[in-house]
């Protein structure tokens, strides 16, 4: 076989080698691509069945999931700090929680949830809390591995 053909075959081989790489990267891309983009999900109107019950704002917080304090109930009078620091009203022993992780406070008739700049974030019903947001009865707040439920 002439050398020129061998040379050509070498280029073909290198091309196929990179086709393999491209297909491998494509498989990773397809896996990462969300079915619906997060931006679109944020823009879409959130169904809020609890809106109607806004007058029945929560009065207490029950710990659903959490080491050592599971099942405890805290009353929502003015302000509740949640975190690992002893100065918090709800002290969690949770390695995924920050020292002062989140704040629950009342604003008039409403109960608000605010993230205090935690490392792993605060979630209200699986939605990440970026700014203070109103919470309703039955909502769940997740802080690290700890889950709190807002109650009447």
């Amino acid at each position: 076989m002439p050398t020129i053909v061998l040379d050509l075959l070498k280029y073909v081989f290198l091309a196929v080698l990179y086709i393999f790489m491209a297909r491998a990267v494509r498989a990773i891309y397809l896996e990462l691509k969300p079915e619906r983009s997060p931006a679109a999900a944020r823009r879409a109107p959130q169904p809020k069945p609890q809106q109607r019950r806004s007058k029945r704002s929560p009065r207490s917080v029950k710990v659903i999931e959490g080491e050592g304090i599971k099942g405890k109930t805290f009353s929502l009078s003015d302000e509740l700090l949640v975190g690992r620091a002893d100065s918090c009203q709800i002290v969690v022993s949770d390695s995924y929680a920050s020292q002062v992780h989140a704040r629950l406070f009342t604003k008039g008739d409403q109960v608000m949830v605010e993230d205090m700049g935690s490392t792993n974030g605060t979630y209200l019903n699986r939605q990440k809390v970026t700014a203070p947001v109103e919470a309703f009865k039955g909502d769940r707040v997740k802080i690290g591995k700890t889950v709190l439920e807002l109650r009447r």
Binding site: Y96, S98, T119, N120, G121, Y123, K142
Partner: peptide
Amino acid sequence: AHTAEILIGGRT
């Protein structure tokens, strides 16, 4: 149910 969003190793 509740561990899906936990990040690895992050702590303050």
